[in-house]
């Protein structure tokens, strides 16, 4: 027993230079598991903001893109409150975008206090993480050095409009294409009809959820690129993931619902011009969940302020563009950060 405990405690010993540092961050009633992996001596930490809401940052820790990015920088993965492997005692009133953004901003400070004030910290959000990252940048005054939004949704109402428009246009295109299979044609027709039936100025929450479901289903009716490394990443994810999915799903469901309610009416598009740090917007051309037009809007708004920015659309990629095109995805991030990152 003593040996067992000693081994465990030794494995937990502090070592900021370690490529795999696992700890908890307690803030505002919640313990957030934090995993920092990769090249810490690059002096760059990408703070991963996972999707969902209701997901886990660990989900992003097993792809081939992760290996490539961690060869260049350190990546800090943390689970947002109620999600993944978080513990805590907190009320439903804390399940707001503002609170999760505040948690994120506090973690930015903690990362610098733990690893050094000279570390550049870039927010790196996927999907819902795009909303969280934008909220953190604009509403918390977090001291971050850059922003990477990958297929992010910083504007839920506009996201729905773009998704509906994309379905309507895709359905029209497919109707003229005789080479499309009957099954695909039926799906696009159904999705197009549903999108056409919506009042785009007033989409209800239920219709928004249905639209989102169609958008995910659309990925099985388009030709996405596939990476040879996908299988290995999936095996690692299924077998080595430290988060038990049933528990994470259950607690994430509660928190995810509350955060989605808040996000449903949240639109950061009018304020995107306030972003003042180098920003990379990466989207998949076949993403119906968070269409690339969202990234284009963000790029235009940030670019208009003279801030270093780039907008990259990966072809043959859907919502999980880091899975579809891992090498290109990682390379775009590495190049952008190396080009525009300013040493502190």
């Amino acid at each position: 027993m003593i040996g067992f405990i000693l081994t465990t405690l030794l494995a937990c010993a502090d070592n900021p230079a370690d490529l795999r540092d696992y700890w908890y961050f307690r803030t505002d009633g919640v313990d957030l598991p934090v995993r920092v992996e990769g090249k810490l001596d690059s002096d760059v930490i990408l703070l991963m903001l996972h999707g969902g809401p209701g997901g886990s940052a660990v989900d992003y820790n097993y792809g081939y893109d992760t290996d490539l990015i961690e060869d260049a920088f350190a990546v800090a993965y943390f689970d947002q409150r109620t999600q993944g492997g978080t513990h805590g005692n907190y009320g439903a009133e804390t399940l707001t975008i503002q609170q999760v953004a505040t948690d994120t901003a506090n973690l930015v400070d903690a990362l610098r206090d733990r690893y050094g004030q000279d570390k550049q910290i870039w927010l790196y959000g996927h999907s819902w993480g795009g909303m969280l990252g934008t909220a953190t940048l604009l509403d918390t005054g977090a001291d971050v050095d850059g922003w990477i939004e990958a297929a992010g949704s910083h504007d839920y109402p506009l996201n729905d409009v773009y998704t509906a428009q994309k379905f309507i246009s895709q359905a029209a295109e497919v109707a003229l294409d005789s080479s499309v299979s009957r099954q695909d044609a039926m799906f696009w027709s159904e999705a197009g009809d549903f999108a056409s039936s919506l009042d785009l100025d007033n989409i209800s929450e239920n219709d928004s959820l249905d639209l989102n479901q169609f958008a995910f289903e659309a990925e099985s009716h388009v030709e996405l690129a596939s990476s040879d490394e996908f299988g290995e990443g999936l095996m690692r994810y299924l077998l080595l993931n430290p988060t038990v999915k049933s528990t994470a799903w259950w607690s994430g469901l509660w928190g995810g619902d509350a955060l989605n309610d808040d996000a449903f009416t949240t639109s950061y598009t009018p304020r995107l011009g306030e972003i003042s740090v180098p920003s990379l917007f990466l989207y998949g051309d076949l993403d119906f969940v968070c269409p690339k037009e969202l990234g284009e809007d963000a790029f235009n708004a940030v670019d208009a302020q003279g801030v270093s920015t780039d907008f990259v659309v990966l072809e043959a990629s859907g919502h999980s563009l880091m899975v579809d095109r891992p090498e290109d995805f990682a390379q775009e991030i590495i190049t952008f950060v190396n080009t525009w990152g300013v040493p502190r």
Binding site: L9, C12, W23, Y24, R26, H87, N106, D113, R114
Partner: peptide, 19 residues
Amino acid sequence: INGGRTYSYTDSGELKGNP
């Protein structure tokens, strides 16, 4: 007991780890 230290800010603003 959380695996790894649990870090939090003290009232004086210092980040401290609790094993």
